[in-house]
Write a protein that binds this DNA or RNA. Structure first.
Lengths: 213, 213
DNA sequence: CGACCTATTGAAAGCTATCAACTGGGGTGG
DNA sequence: CCACCCCAGTTGATAGCTTTCAATAGGTCG
């Protein structure tokens, strides 16, 4: 069983004046950060690294509902408890924000609001992907999501996720994801140095398949 | 072509002090409220009625990404433009909030923030539905979403959506949605007085199929 | 070097999409 | 007021894509 590695590296938050100052913490990869159903006390912010949010069905089917990077927030609640579990994919630096602090700190509230809007937009795109795209298109969308803005054809991406995790994100099975990668390879759109090292040979084709969503 | 019917019924917003006061407006059913790609000026709030947000793929495939009721917000932007189109399903009352007002009005910002969190949670559930549920489960989920809290078996729901709209919401085709309704009817879980009048005979089965998501 | 886990590939089954015909209800025009 | 038309919905048959089950390959770590 993995444990949460928590290491205080000081607070850089200047708008906090409360009894629970924001503390940065570093966590190792593949650590469960919080559980669906646990009491929702704080809103967490990703400072560095990648976090995935997951939901489970009673019979064990899993969906990765969101992938989070620097600036993104998690720890949402509908009522009293978290609606998703969260797990670090890479080594991460996180900050927790007390829910009460949102009422006091207008600058923080504004920043969180802006970020919620961005994440809501990302979820809208994801709904389109899950509801209407083929397996090949979904994997292309996944790759495009990982490509930095100014990326050119020929660059290499590192995947921090297994085929199973990618499948759970895209609403597919791990075999189908693997077949999609093979198909992209066969078409000369990507090259795989290793399973988690993807060289983008034809950025345009990836964009086109992803529907520029 | 349908047009937006706009009827001022006065402002009930007391925290506004800006150059663009919040104005309530009533719109007819099946009216396009805003278009994906248009410049994003205001955030809209549903006061009464139901609104659907949709996204399109270049080839015409459509996804209804969100269904909104009273209190819900829309008009999100990632950059300068709306990421979704919005259309009224029923007759609606709406209020527009100037984006600049969010900076000035802390009470409004707090309310919007809270609502964004609720909608984000709803999107997480929807991702689970779209990514991991069967057709029958999706339709059950859809019905559960429409059932009021204190609803008992035997009550009747009115659907404000066509089979095509439900299909676009659930990531299915209209035929599959129709077959799912027939299957629920065959199992005695629902009864259909008309295509848009659903009597819930067995609330428990609906909940179970929907995975209590 | 071997064990184990992840990924790939193959074959067959299953579910949903697609194509097509038919039904029914509502509205319109005669 | 009735008949017809039109559109939404239902149902059937077939095709296609993804899943499932299974076997093989590759890589990493002890």
């Amino acid at each position: 069983m993995r444990q949460i590695i928590e290491e205080r590296i000081g607070s850089h938050s200047h708008h906090m004046q409360a009894e629970t100052p924001a503390a940065h913490q570093r966590v190792a990869p593949h650590v469960t950060l919080l559980h669906e159903g646990d009491p929702a006390r704080r809103i967490m912010e990703v400072v560095e690294g990648t976090v995935m949010l997951t939901k489970l069905l009673p019979d064990g089917r899993r969906q990765v509902v969101e992938l989070l990077g620097p600036g993104d927030m998690f720890g949402f609640a509908n009522g009293e408890t978290y609606v998703c579990s969260a797990e670090s994919l890479t080594s991460c630096v996180l900050v927790g924000h007390d829910r009460a602090a949102l009422e006091r700190d207008a600058a923080l509230a504004s920043r969180v609001l802006r970020r919620f809007e961005i994440q809501l937009c990302a979820m809208h795109s994801h709904a389109l992907v899950l509801g209407r795209m083929s397996a090949l298109e979904r994997v292309a969308f996944f790759l495009m999501r990982l490509m930095p803005e100014g990326m050119v054809s020929g660059s290499t991406l590192h995947l921090a996720m297994t085929r199973q995790e990618i499948a759970d994100f895209l609403g597919l099975t791990l075999e189908t994801v693997s077949r999609a990668f093979s198909e992209l390879k066969r078409r000369g759109i990507v090259a795989l140095a290793r399973a988690d090292e993807v060289r983008i040979q034809d950025r345009g084709s990836v964009r086109r398949l992803a529907g520029a969503a």
